[in-house]
């Protein structure tokens, strides 16, 4: 079946089994490999991405669900290395990744979290992100999310200021 949707801001169309998990569509049909397979059962969060601004575990989301919607993966979070998303910048500042495999999922979850809770506490972060990381980057992830929230606030302030000028 042909399914049309938007991926990282661009219109796309795939012709696949409508039940195919979005994870495999993104990875293998659209060749965007940041979104990871970890468990296939919505338990690890490695495949987290955004659909119309909400977070989803794409291993457990049939592609037909995103028909007409807009999907963002880590590749679409920032324009390029020169314009990093606050979460990516914070991830670099805090030197977060080890093996790095779980990080795209965490970053996508974090990007959403700081829009819902612009100034999250440790407790907010612990209660709202249940992804798993085997390398044990947990303490740095928590720090990085708080830092990303700060970066987000300063950048919004700056752009608000600009808008007023």
């Amino acid at each position: 079946m042909k399914i049309d949707f938007e991926i990282n801001g661009k219109a796309t169309s795939v012709d696949v089994d409508p039940q195919m998990p979005l994870l495999w569509v993104v990875r293998d049909e659209l060749n965007l490999k940041a979104t990871k397979y970890g468990c296939g059962k919505a338990m690890c969060g490695a495949c987290t991405l955004h659909v119309d601004g909400d977070i989803f575990r794409s291993c457990s989301l049939a592609v037909e669900y995103v028909s007409g919607k807009s999907v963002t993966t880590l590749e679409g979070l920032s324009k390029n290395e020169g314009h990093l998303h606050p979460v990516q910048q914070a991830w670099i500042d805090e030197n977060v990744p080890q093996c790095g495999y779980c990080q795209p999922g965490f970053m996508m979850a974090a990007a959403k979290l700081i829009t819902v809770i612009p100034n999250p506490t440790d407790q907010d972060i612990k209660a709202n992100i249940s992804n798993i990381c085997r390398c044990g980057t947990h303490p740095r992830i928590i720090k990085a999310i708080k830092r990303a929230a700060q970066i987000q606030q300063t950048t919004t302030l700056i752009s608000d200021g600009k808008a007023k000028e």
Binding site: K33, A34, L74, W91, N95, P97, Q103, M107
Partner: peptide, 10 residues
């Protein structure tokens, strides 16, 4: 290896 890892490179 931070850049490839935060950019989600393959």
């Amino acid at each position: 290896d931070l850049i490839p890892k935060v950019m989600g490179k393959p």
